[in-house]
Nucleic acid binder design. Structure first.
Length: 413
DNA sequence: GTAGGGTTAG
């Protein structure tokens, strides 16, 4: 919210630079400005700028320019306008092609409006060559919308059209089945791919493994890992990160550790995500020493801990009621130039409430407000409940007043 | 961020 007027600064600077003699904006800076105005939803100014670009000659408005315009219009829910830009793209000196159609459809799907994507598909599929990507965008959209039947129909149409569904098409289906907790079908995806002679990639295996793991289907996830190794796909760092997460979350810390230690031998070096993941697993199981040791190792190896690292460690410290450790970690963050954000306050306050360290939770709440952060209602409610349970009436009133003030401040600015 | 994959949480 505080930065919502940044576009004005950018725009002023852009216009000022223009007034300097001998200076002409490059097409790239025009594109950047178009994107900034679109992000701020200042479409009138955006169209003025486009007109200016048009008057400057042919090379100013490019495919990239109109891509930005389309994506920003869709993000602002201006679906009809986005479609009209594509329908009349010739006005900008460009011609309709498959990539631009795909951009338009992809924007709609990302804006959760697969209907619009389908509509433009129908409108243009006979006049423009559509490709695998075009179909995959629709498959992804319909799966996201929970209409797997239509996604399957698109796959059939795709084949009739001479495009073979690829690994990505099937990954979309897998995500759908995972959301629906239909693990039988999810597990069947690899076999279905085999029948269709579609070769899974590392990304396919990693995605499936991760989806199953997050749905607590540990054995099935490990089965995917096995199949990956039996195939020609060598697991990559991200595959191992998934595997470590799955094992660790299931409490198999020894196994997770072994995977971690074996990574270099298998040609995949651990990265910051690997460290964060294993640290998270240790914290999740209150293994304080191991977690801190790994933090040390992470730094020794030149990886910087980030907010995720500290969030995990702080959550554990709260569960273990280790106030000293909390302050040690906050200091650690400070030394690493990482400032405490809303998510960290949220971890601290809710964690301390849970551990009945309500006074400490209150002081972090006050600190949070003094830094002009607005606590989420859920967090506020949790603190109030904790205070009520402890019969801390006065403190509760103080907190309520503070929250009111913070909300007022927010509506004024 | 601009077609796919990895860590946060109840």
């Amino acid at each position: 919210m505080r930065f919502s007027n940044e576009w004005i600064l950018a725009f002023d600077f852009f216009n000022w630079a223009q007034t300097q003699t001998d200076y002409k904006h490059s097409p790239e800076s025009y594109n950047l400005m178009v994107d900034i105005l679109g992000k701020a939803k200042k479409f009138e100014l955006l169209w003025d700028l486009i007109d200016e670009m048009k008057s400057l000659g042919d090379c100013y408005i490019s495919f990239l320019t109109m891509t930005k315009v389309i994506r920003r219009l869709v993000r602002a829910n201006m679906f009809k306008e986005a479609m009209d830009v594509f329908r009349g793209i010739e006005r900008f000196g460009l011609s309709k092609d498959t990539s631009m159609l795909n951009i338009l459809m992809d924007s709609f799907v990302n804006g959760d409006s697969v209907d619009h994507a389908q509509q433009v598909f129908l409108e243009f599929k006979d006049s423009l060559p559509v490709n695998t990507q075009t179909f995959n965008i629709l498959i992804q959209g319909w799966c996201k919308a929970g209409k797997v039947g239509i996604a399957r129909k698109i796959m059939e149409e795709m084949e009739r059209h001479g495009c073979q569904p690829n690994a990505l098409s099937y990954t979309c289906l897998a995500r759908f089945y995972c959301d629906k907790k239909d693990f039988r079908k999810l597990n069947g995806i690899l076999n279905e791919m085999k029948i269709k002679d579609c070769t899974p990639t590392v990304a396919t295996y990693t995605t499936l493994m991760c989806l199953l793991g997050k749905s607590k289907q540990i054995n099935e996830a490990l089965e995917i890992y096995k199949r990956m190794n039996e195939s020609d796909c060598a697991p990559e760092t991200s595959s191992f990160n998934s595997l470590i997460f799955i094992l660790g979350k299931a409490g198999r810390l020894k196994d997770a550790e072994e995977v971690f230690n074996d990574m270099p031998k298998k040609g995949a070096m651990p990265d910051e995500v690997t460290f964060n993941t294993l640290i998270f697993c240790y914290c999740d199981h209150l293994q304080e020493e191991k977690a801190l040791k790994l933090l040390q190792k992470m730094e020794n190896m030149g990886f910087k801990p980030d907010l995720k690292t500290y969030a995990a460690l702080l959550k554990m410290s709260c569960s273990k009621k280790r106030m000293k450790l909390i302050y040690f970690l906050l200091n650690h963050m400070y030394n690493n130039n990482i400032s405490i954000d809303v998510s960290i306050y949220s971890v601290l306050i809710s964690g301390l409430c849970k551990s009945e360290r309500v006074e400490h939770a209150c002081s972090f709440f006050k600190e949070m407000i003094s830094k002009e952060f607005l606590p989420q209602d859920g967090l506020y409610d949790r603190l109030r409940e904790a205070l009520e349970a402890k019969n801390m009436v006065e403190e509760k009133e103080k907190i309520e007043k503070l929250m009111l003030m913070a909300k007022k401040r927010r509506t004024v600015s």
